[in-house]
C-alpha cells in the first residue's frame, strides 16, 4: 500500500525557558521545562484520501503539519511524506506538497493578488504561463477573479485567506496540508472552500489532503477518515461513520440548565460514559452533553439538577456526532 503520509512513534517536544520564579518552584505540569506537543503519533494516510485531524486548540495538529511539511524535525520517531523521510529527503517532499493555514495573510502588500501567487509558484518550478492560467482558474473558483489585479493590501481578511488557498493549489501538489482552512471565514466562503477541497480530491485520483480542523461538522462532511487528537496523542482513527458507531449503542443527551454549584455528582451516576459542560455567556446557562450507555442514568441526571433546585430549559436526545465521540473519549467539548 502506498501511503501519502505515514508516521511511526512520532514525538515532538518543545523546550521552553522557565522564568526565574518558575525555576525555584517544584516542577509541576504548568511550569515544566519541556512541553510535549506530539506523543507517539502513528497515522497512515492513503494516497487519494481526504484525511482529517480533529482536535481542540493546542492538541498538536499544527505541530504535526509542520513536521510533515518539513518545517520542523521530530524529536523522536519517523515520518514519511510521499514515501520520503521528512528528516532527510526534504527536496523530494517539497516538490510534491504545499500547505495553507487558515489565519494566513502572507505575501507582499504592494503586489497584486495574482502577482503574489505567481511569485510563490515560481519557487515550485511551475512554468510562468501555466501558473498564470492556473491562478486565473483558481481565482474564478474562489470568487476572487474580479479582484485578482488588486494590490494585496486592499483585500479583506477573508479574501486574503482565499488568496492563500489559490497559492496552495497553484502548484498542483500531490499532497496538500490544510491547517484550519476555514478558520474565521463566513458561512459562504467556508462552503466554497469545502466544496473545492472535496471536488479536488474526488476529481484527482491520486491527490491527498490532510486537513486539520476543530469544526467537527467540517471533518464529518469532508473526510474519508478522521484521527481524533488531544494533548499530542491520537486517540482514535477511523471513518466518521465507524467512529460514530462506537457511540451509537450509547445515546447522547443534551441539557440546557441554570448553572449548578457542583457538577462532580454526575461522575458517580452509573451508566454515564462521559460528559462535557460549557457555559453559554449570552444566556448564562450551562450546556451539558452526556454520552450514556444506560437509559436509567437519565432520571439520575435530572434528579441532580432538580435536587439543586435549578431549572431545566431544554432537554434533547440526539443522534451521535463526531463531537460526541470526542466527548466520550476525553470528557470535554471540542470548542
Amino acid at each position: 500500500m502506498n501511503y501519502a503520509v505515514e508516521t511511526k512513534n512520532l514525538c515532538r517536544v518543545f523546550k521552553r525557558k522557565r522564568s526565574r520564579k518558575e525555576r525555584k518552584q517544584e516542577p509541576t505540569k504548568e511550569n515544566q521545562k519541556e512541553v510535549v506537543a506530539l506523543d507517539d503519533v502513528n497515522i497512515q494516510v492513503k494516497e487519494g484520501e481526504l484525511f482529517g485531524l480533529l482536535g481542540p486548540n493546542g492538541a498538536g495538529k499544527t505541530t504535526l503539519i509542520k513536521i510533515l511539511s518539513t518545517l520542523l524535525l521530530p524529536t523522536k520517531g519517523e515520518a514519511w511524506v510521499a514515501g520520503h523521510n521528512v528528516a532527510e529527503d526534504t527536496f523530494n517532499i517539497r516538490m510534491k506538497i504545499n500547505s495553507v493555514s487558515g489565519g494566513e495573510s502572507s505575501g507582499y502588500g504592494l503586489l497584486t493578488a495574482r502577482e503574489n501567487v505567481w511569485m510563490f509558484s515560481q519557487f515550485y518550478d511551475v512554468p510562468s504561463k501555466v501558473a498564470k492560467q492556473r491562478a486565473d482558474d483558481l481565482f474564478k473558483t474562489f470568487g476572487l477573479y474580479e479582484k485578482r489585479n488588486q494590490k494585496m493590501r486592499t483585500l479583506s481578511t477573508g479574501e486574503r485567506q482565499k488568496m492563500g488557498m489559490v497559492r496552495g493549489f497553484i502548484t498542483d501538489p500531490d499532497i496538500i496540508f490544510l491547517d484550519e482552512p476555514t478558520l474565521g471565514l463566513d458561512v459562504n466562503a467556508s462552503r466554497v472552500i469545502r466544496r473545492f477541497v472535496a471536488d479536488w480530491v474526488r476529481e484527482h485520483e491520486k491527490k491527498t489532503v490532510l486537513l486539520t480542523t476543530h469544526y467537527m461538522m467540517e471533518a464529518e462532511e469532508l473526510c474519508d477518515r478522521v484521527a481524533i487528537i488531544d494533548k499530542g496523542k491520537v486517540l482514535v482513527c477511523d471513518t466518521p461513520e465507524n467512529l460514530k458507531k462506537t457511540v451509537r449503542r450509547s445515546s447522547t443527551l443534551r441539557l440546557e440548565i441554570d448553572p449548578l454549584k457542583d457538577y462532580s455528582k454526575f461522575r458517580d451516576i452509573p451508566g454515564i460514559r462521559n460528559f462535557s459542560k460549557k457555559v453559554n455567556p449570552e444566556t448564562n446557562r450551562s450546556e451539558l452533553v452526556f454520552v450514556i450507555d444506560d437509559e436509567a442514568a437519565v432520571s439520575d441526571i435530572l434528579s441532580v439538577v432538580t435536587g439543586e433546585g435549578k431549572r431545566i430549559h431544554e432537554l434533547r436526545k440526539t443522534e451521535p456526532t463526531l463531537e460526541d465521540v470526542f466527548v466520550s473519549l476525553v470528557g470535554r467539548a471540542l470548542e
Partner: peptide, 26 residues
C-alpha cells in the same frame, strides 16, 4: 536540469516584487 531551472525561476520570482514594488510606489 530541474534544479537549475527551479532556482532560476525562484530567483526571478523573488526579484520581481523588489523591482515592481520599488517602481510601483511613486
Amino acid at each position: 536540469n530541474i534544479h537549475l531551472r527551479l532556482n532560476l525561476r525562484a530567483i526571478l520570482g523573488r526579484a520581481y516584487p523588489r523591482v515592481i514594488g520599488s517602481l510601483r510606489e511613486p
